[in-house]
Simulated assay, not measured.
Amino acid sequence: MLKLYKRIKRTNQNGLTLIEVMAAVVILSIAVLSFTMLFSKNVEFSHREENRNAALTVARTVIEELKPVLPTTGNANIFGQQVLLASLRDNNAATAPAVIYYPSAADRQYRITITDLVIPASQSFQVQDKLKPANTFQFNVRDYFSHIQVQVDGLTSTGESYTLQSYIERNEARP
């Protein structure tokens, strides 16, 4: 009878103990939690990049809307809002920036600040005449271009700010 008991006891040890099951559950839980955190960070990063791309697209659109109208004497209508361009043409640091909102003045998701940055009088370029190399011409950059800065501030939960700068020709094209 004792031999039968020892044989039964030995063959019964093929199963898992409660401690082994608990250790497997803990390891599996740690792995699942790690993947969950990784996924949530990935979604957060994707959302932040989506907001950044939207803000930069708005800034590029404003710059592109300003390019054809800055050389003229008129004003710009950007996102259904009037922008006075006289302040963007004078190259004066005391000029107040223009402020508009995107997608509209009523639905404010982004505040857009358009500023004319001062171009120093010393910033110029020299052009040499190809036919007569002895002739050179000096041009002051501020006589021909405006240095425009468009800052887009998010008014939603992120509240991030993005800035885009561009030189825009402000003199009308010559024939």
Results as ranks from 00 to 15, higher is better:
Ile27Glu: 12
Val32Arg: 03
Glu49Arg: 03
Phe79Gln: 04
Ile78His: 04
Ser124Gly: 15
Ser166Arg: 02
Arg111Pro: 00
Thr61Gln: 06
Leu70Ser: 09
Pro133Met: 09
Val69Asp: 00
Asn135Cys: 07
Pro103Cys: 09
Ala121His: 03
Leu38Ser: 15
Asp129Thr: 04
Asp116His: 03
Ile112Tyr: 04
Leu70Tyr: 10
Gln81Phe: 11
Ser87Met: 09
Val83Ala: 10
Asp107Tyr: 08
Tyr110Asn: 05
Asn140Arg: 14
Ser157Met: 05
Thr73Gly: 13
Val118Ala: 07
Phe145Trp: 06
Ser29Leu: 15
Thr156Phe: 08
Ser161Glu: 07
Tyr144Ser: 08
Val141Pro: 04
Ala54Leu: 13
Asn75Trp: 03
Ser161Ile: 12
Gly80Glu: 11
Val58Ala: 00
Ile27Arg: 07
Glu50Cys: 00
Asn77Lys: 08
Pro97Met: 05
Thr61Asp: 06
Leu66Glu: 08
Tyr102Asp: 02
Val127Leu: 15
Arg60Lys: 11
Thr115Trp: 02
Pro133Gln: 13
Gln165Thr: 15
Val62Cys: 04
Glu64Trp: 01
Arg89His: 10
Ala106Asn: 08
Arg111Lys: 13
Gly154Ala: 07
Ala96Trp: 01
Asp107Gln: 12
Asn91Leu: 04
Glu49Trp: 01
Val43Asp: 09
Leu84Arg: 13
Thr113Asn: 01
Ile148Thr: 01
Asn42Glu: 15
Ala121Arg: 00
Asn140Trp: 05
Asn51Trp: 00
Gln123Cys: 02
Thr113Tyr: 02
Val99Arg: 11
Gln138Ile: 03
Ile148Tyr: 02
Gln126His: 07
Thr73Ser: 14
Thr72Glu: 09
Ile100Phe: 11
Glu44Lys: 04
Tyr110Gly: 00
Ala134Thr: 13
Glu160Gly: 11
Gln165Cys: 00
Pro71Gln: 14
Asn91Ala: 12
Tyr110Leu: 03
Asn77Ile: 09
Pro71Ala: 12
Glu160Asp: 14
Leu70Arg: 06
Asn91Pro: 01
Gly159Val: 07
